[in-house]
């Protein structure tokens, strides 16, 4: 177990690859027992999507662009959601994950108010499935009940399972192993998402992060964090969209 504590999970999202197809969204619903988002749930703004694709418009017809950006829990190193929880139901663990403990949560929703990324979701209802659809539920993930918060966990159940099975079979679970990677990463058809261990210098995410962040703010470096000025120290690194018509403009 010792080596598993030295890991620090992170993700790199290449927006230049993302097509906004929503493959990650459906994969996440399937893996994490997220209740079916019915029409009324959307209308009440109470739909749950641990990962979502945000679509932004720039310009107007005919010079119009749509931009896509996948947003999931940023697993902040300095998370605004954590200090506000009165019952320590959300905290930072040694693997860099911002953990939501369902059985501790009492549903104050302070954390959702604190989160600048809007990635925390409250269960306003007891989740319901028709009897037969329950056959699909993933036994590795808790079915959340009414009155508690939930959010992207970087598919911690996959991390746990693959690590344990690796220890059992005495094999090292490599970064990029599909049993370890979150469901969204495995699904993404354009490989816009990369997941791995930031503490392992030879992992793909580490190298991507280093390359992306080395020249931050300069032309060569495409890396940035969402709402970085808030000091959240997010563990999700975004790579800027390349747009030849964007001229010399790049961010702040």
């Amino acid at each position: 177990m010792a080596d598993s504590q030295d890991r620090k999970w992170g993700m790199v999202v290449d927006i230049d690859r993302c097509t906004g197809c929503n493959g990650c969204v459906v994969a996440c619903q399937s893996e994490n027992n997220i209740p079916n988002n019915l029409e009324e749930h959307f209308n009440q703004r109470r739909a749950i999507q641990w990962i979502r694709i945000e679509r932004y418009w720039e310009g107007e017809y005919p010079n119009v662009k749509a931009r896509f950006i996948p947003v999931m829990c940023q697993q902040c190193g300095n998370a605004p959601c954590e200090p506000v929880c009165p019952v320590y139901a959300t905290y930072h663990n040694e693997e860099g994950l911002n953990v939501q403990v369902y059985n501790r949560c009492i549903g104050t929703r302070f954390c959702a108010n604190g989160c600048p990324y809007h990635v925390r979701f409250f269960n306003f209802w007891e989740p319901e499935w028709p009897e037969s659809l329950k056959n699909q539920l993933n036994p590795d993930v808790t079915v959340r009940s009414r009155g508690i918060m939930e959010k992207c966990s970087f598919c911690v159940q996959r991390i746990r399972r693959s690590t344990r099975e690796g220890e059992r079979d005495e094999v090292q679970v490599e970064d990029g192993d599909r049993a370890l990677s979150p469901a969204c990463v495995n699904a993404c058809p354009t490989t816009a998402l990369t997941f791995g261990d930031f503490n392992n210098d030879s992992s793909q995410v580490s190298m991507m992060k280093e390359e992306a962040m080395a020249n931050r703010g300069k032309k060569e470096g495409r890396g940035y964090r969402l709402l970085d000025n808030l000091g959240t120290e997010a563990n999700v690194i975004y790579l800027k969209k390349v747009d030849n018509s964007a001229g010399a403009v790049h961010g702040h």
Partner: peptide, 29 residues
């Protein structure tokens, strides 16, 4: 009828022409 969608109703236009809503680079590298 309210359109069922995840995003909010605030229009997603950039505030001004040089301030992109998601960060862009012109670098072709």
């Amino acid at each position: 009828v309210r359109v069922p969608k995840f995003e909010n109703t605030v229009p997603d236009f950039p505030r001004d022409e040089h301030n992109h809503v998601i960060e862009l680079t012109s670098e072709d590298t």
